[in-house]
Design a protein around this nucleic acid. Structure first.
Lengths: 115, 115
DNA sequence: CCGAATCCTATACGATACTG
DNA sequence: CAGTATCGTATAGGATTCGG
């Protein structure tokens, strides 16, 4: 596989708005549907469900439903999902380290355009 | 910064369709505009220019124009851009390693839905 | 050769309402 | 509690054309 294909493939899975946030929310073990919705600020039911289905389909997340009253459904990372989280952590750390620098660059760039 | 914010911030820079591909294309030193367009398969002029401007603004890429005939413009990664490329490489490798596995999972998932 | 400007479309996403 | 269904919108991005 070429480098370009690798990047494209990765972005197809993780490039949307919520996928990485959902994976991040599952970092510490199984989480219930409602708990996910609370912990991921701003996500709608529609997108939470949709994102979870995508992740299930790719084998990154497993869904476990318990026949109880009230119903309980838990989602958890598979080994594959965990390995993606590890890989993504590097990028998250980079973003955290350089956030201020990038913001400063933007301010400088925009200021230069206005002259 | 929380983990959620870190993920969101990273995706705001790199989550679009072309950013990481452009950065990847600049891996081995300065590249001319037309050369970039050739090496990044499928990119339109509009998106190449737009993506380069974004990267310039964030300080990830520098633009060098030479007053020659014919005109020559070269783009290159800054140190910041190079550091992002390093962080992204981990994710590219992950995608390459697990591409087949994910495809197989999808086939299995879809087959199960059709029963 | 290196773009900018315009037009157009697909789709990702949010809001809302409803169900087992 | 854990979803599904429907609708409306915003925007990313492609195609095309024109300019320095």
């Amino acid at each position: 596989m070429t480098k370009g294909e690798g990047i494209r493939h990765m972005l197809d899975r993780a490039g949307d708005k919520w996928t990485l946030l959902v994976i991040g929310a599952l970092e510490h073990g199984p989480v219930r549907y409602t708990e996910l919705q609370r912990s991921i600020e701003g996500i709608s039911q529609r997108m939470l469900t949709h994102t979870l289905r995508q992740l299930q389909r790719d084998g990154l997340v497993v869904r476990d439903a318990y026949a109880e009253v009230p119903p309980r459904v838990e989602y958890a990372l598979t080994d594959l999902g965990t390995s993606l989280l590890d890989a993504v952590t590097v990028l998250i750390d980079w973003a955290g380290s350089h956030h201020d620098e990038i913001c400063a660059n933007r301010v400088g760039y925009d200021a230069a355009r206005e002259e």
